[in-house]
């Protein structure tokens, strides 16, 4: 039911893990629904220098998490914010229709991580 690309990312997920001193962290989904993911980013000169994920969920949830880390790594924050759910699904050579909504949360998690970064930066500026 999954594309070869999805299975490849499921077998060998990229950038799996945590970043201890992350500049931004975004969590979306809920274990009650069966899918939950956290994205960690490290930002340098407005670019995503490092990115990692942790995911509880089905094959599609894990593959989309892995894929978004590949798509976002090295991009500026503005570019990264433009990555859509559809971009992630397309890069994975498609997802089963039933998975498009419930498990395709990675773009949202990345957005949440970047927003967290902006919020923290603003906090730092205000402190100074």
């Amino acid at each position: 039911m999954y594309s070869e690309k999805v299975m490849e990312h499921f077998r060998n997920p990229r950038n799996m893990g945590e970043i201890k001193d992350a500049d931004g962290v975004g969590t979306v989904g809920n274990p009650v629904c069966g899918d939950m993911m956290t994205i960690y980013i490290k930002v340098k000169d407005n670019r995503i220098e490092d990115i990692k994920f942790k995911t509880f969920g089905c094959g599609a949830a894990i593959a989309t998490s892995s894929m978004i880390t590949e798509l976002a790594k090295g991009k500026t924050l503005e570019e990264a914010l433009k990555i859509t759910r559809k971009d992630v699904a397309d890069a994975l050579e498609g997802l089963p229709p039933v998975k498009m909504h419930c498990s395709n949360l990675a773009a949202d998690a990345l957005k949440a991580a970047i927003e967290d970064y902006y919020k923290k930066q603003k906090g730092k500026v205000e402190k100074q």
Binding site: M7, F10, D35, F56, G57, I62
Partner: peptide, 21 residues
């Protein structure tokens, strides 16, 4: 989550099922 367990089992040649959503 159950489906990711089933996929992992399938990669090892084992077919099972889950009550997972």
């Amino acid at each position: 989550e159950g489906e990711s367990i089933l996929l992992s089992l399938d990669m090892m040649g084992v077919a099972a099922s889950s009550g997972s959503a």
